[in-house]
Design a protein around this nucleic acid. Structure first.
Lengths: 260, 260
DNA sequence: CGATTGATTGATTAGAGTCAAAGCAGGTGG
DNA sequence: CCACCTGCTTTGACTCTAATCAATCAATCG
């Protein structure tokens, strides 16, 4: 078993996690115990509060002691699964999908390296959506009960978890605004700029990247049909705002996009 | 100064808070210190974890020691305000509104008795939206730093706060699904059923109630224009699903509404 | 009681959805 | 190594839902 195997660099962490796992415990899923160490993870600035002492980091390392590798299309968790852990994306990317009985689907988010997954499960003790890998990916597994215990004795971590959850609330609010008030054109532009910003924060190019999701998944996230997404991409191409070639995106005129 | 003065009973707590305040401290806003007591609040089951001891409740009473009364249209907090407290609606109701520079507005939620307000401010230390009273209302003020301190020593409260925030994430996800996948007709039906359910959980009739928001505010919440909201109400009236008369709503056929 | 705000309804329009066809890319197996 | 799938994307033609514009009506409030 190996860590992330993606060939395109866009979504991979700048410095990939170093050592291959020493052991593999076969539980329900293949996980690699004792591999990850927050203390020397390149994504720490994204996942963790900035002001932890070495001693506090060690405590965290004791909690976050396993990872899980997924292939493209693999399900990290499914609606209704018992909630036990949250996850941090270490490499790769995911989508979270909410399903209605009648077949309607809504993609509620795309998560890339450094993002958290599973916070919606805290509420009812069961996962509230499906999380699916968009490419071969690795997540850190964070048992939530243990995290809560550490939070009770480590104020900065407690505050960090609160900010994390609040940040998810804020993110979803602005997605509600996108869905409620923007035209198709504005939604697609906002989506591209938002992704660009997040990739930049992770050390990637903000101008050129590869989409890991299909037009259908983008449409499902933005509340429109895949044909409309495609038309908007073509429109941006014509207007020299973006260069699109399949999944390859180059943002030519970010200001122009923002002004739509 | 008196507690909630609304004349229509629909949104008022079944047993209104008993004692008028003894003192009034004039800080920035009129607040009533030492009035509320979680330990004998009729909304406790909604706001608080169910399994607290008397001693634990006393600790809480020490934190949540003031309320604030607002008139219809008053602003509880505004985007950009320094975040210090979250709020629990004691009586009355609110809307939260997200604004875009270009004038677009999205109502992100309606809060009634027992609901929490302000959790989106934790993330950045500033409020992320405006919260405005839809009628004369009273909120409990919960200083967040103190709440965090108590959470560190009281596991059930910690878990409750986590569930509260996660619940907000879940609520917003399903609103994203509503905005992304439903027709205008389905959105309005879902809105009415959802409000009905929440009122029922607070001891009110699920069949008949008064809307405290305008058609425009409803539209702004559901991602449509006020005329469309009005047309859907008229349609439901014709189809004998709902009786509407201005702000008075009677749900005649909840199953019919749910099947749209 | 007039003025203002909110609600309803109608006529028309625009934007996105639907249906359909064709092109492209990547992967598989002969 | 090539041919053929299969799944994804693009584009076009047409349809339909909800937005826009406009007029009227009802309720509320100084």
């Amino acid at each position: 078993m190996q860590l992330a195997q993606t060939c395109e660099p866009a979504y991979r962490a700048p410095r990939p996690a170093p050592a291959p796992p020493l052991h593999t415990l076969e539980t329900e899923f293949p996980t690699t115990p004792r591999t990850p160490r927050c203390s020397d993870c390149s994504l720490r600035a994204l996942c963790m509060p900035p002001d932890l002492t070495a001693q506090q980091l060690a405590k965290l390392d004791a909690v976050i002691c396993s990872t899980r590798s997924l292939k493209r299309g693999d399900v990290l968790y499914r609606t209704g699964d018992t909630f036990q852990s949250i996850y941090a994306v270490r490499s790769g990317s995911f989508k979270t999908v909410l399903m209605h009985r009648d077949g309607r689907e809504q993609v509620t988010g795309f998560q890339i390296a450094g993002d958290a997954l599973g916070l919606d499960g805290v509420c009812a003790g069961r996962q509230n959506c499906d999380a699916i890998a968009l490419e071969d990916s690795v997540v850190c597994i964070i048992p939530f009960a243990q995290l809560e215990a550490v939070c009770r004795e480590m104020k900065p971590l407690q505050q960090h978890v609160h900010r994390l959850m609040s940040g998810e609330i804020v993110r979803e609010s602005s997605q509600m605004m996108l869905l409620g008030t923007m035209t198709a054109e504005q939604r697609v532009a906002t989506f591209l700029l938002n992704l660009s910003t997040r990739l930049k924060a992770r050390g990637f190019s903000s101008a050129e990247f590869n989409l890991r999701m299909t037009r259908e998944e983008i449409g499902c996230y933005l509340g429109m049909k895949l044909e409309t997404v495609s038309r908007m991409f073509s429109k941006f191409q014509r207007e020299n705002l973006v260069n699109t070639n399949g999944k390859t995106i180059r943002i030519v005129d970010p200001d122009g996009l923002a002004q739509l």
